[in-house]
Design a binder for these strands. Sequence first.
DNA 1: CAGGATCCGATCGGATACTG
DNA 2: CAGTATCCGATCGGATCCTG
Lengths: 134, 134
Amino acid sequence: MKPSAQAKETPQSHSDCNATPLGRAIHLLGDSWILLIITNLLQGSMRFNILRAELGHISSKTLTSRLKLLEELGFVQRRAFLEIPPRVEYHITEKGQELGEVIAALEKFGNKHLSNPPIVESGDCAFTSDDIPL
Amino acid sequence: MKPSAQAKETPQSHSDCNATPLGRAIHLLGDSWILLIITNLLQGSMRFNILRAELGHISSKTLTSRLKLLEELGFVQRRAFLEIPPRVEYHITEKGQELGEVIAALEKFGNKHLSNPPIVESGDCAFTSDDIPL
DNA sequence: CAGGATCCGATCGGATACTG
DNA sequence: CAGTATCCGATCGGATCCTG
């Protein structure tokens, strides 16, 4: 049959909505913004615009969506103060802090193998010779 | 046509000034395919099409570009056997194996916080928050 | 100030066809 | 079998405008 029907909720999940926890983790962390946001929040709660500034140039749209996702997942908590002007602080939760371990692993790895020039354009260890394994 | 001035297909989205190793790591790992490929290769070398099958439905184009990047970074080694039909095996390098630690952290995290039934809701693969905020 | 709604361009990524 | 080139649609994300 031809699934021409528009899948309303069948998104861009190229790598099938992995049924495994690792798969989901990979999918979640497979987003630079998520990691960046967590990294920043790990250093302390901050307001929307501050966080936005920290992240460089991220549109409010993007930041909002990521924050919303993280909030739904319970990794970040949103605290809105009903006052004027509005104040909203985002802070990491216990669960979220555990992402710190992943970040740490990432950092460790980065320091070890990605400290030098990220310039990797052509021919590195590329040998297309007849090299026989074992 | 003159495809000599072809743009690099380095998975780069936003131009976050990746001056830091962590930034670069985040950027690198901020790609689901990269993580997925490494995860698979960590379990043993495999041939192009096998790997492709393992990954589900990834186009040769995409797989090739990721593999190329990983090779340039020295995380994966490509071994081509000059024979017919062609045989190419990809296997992880020492450096690449260290990504295993990141994967492990990810897996640990996933098992701890993302192992429950997924509920389809927001856009992509859905995640469940076993701990719903407020 | 926080963030929702739109418009729209840049990019990604899959399908297909072709080569060695 | 491995990989490349091209076409093109789906998605992302930034810019902008607007509201509470």
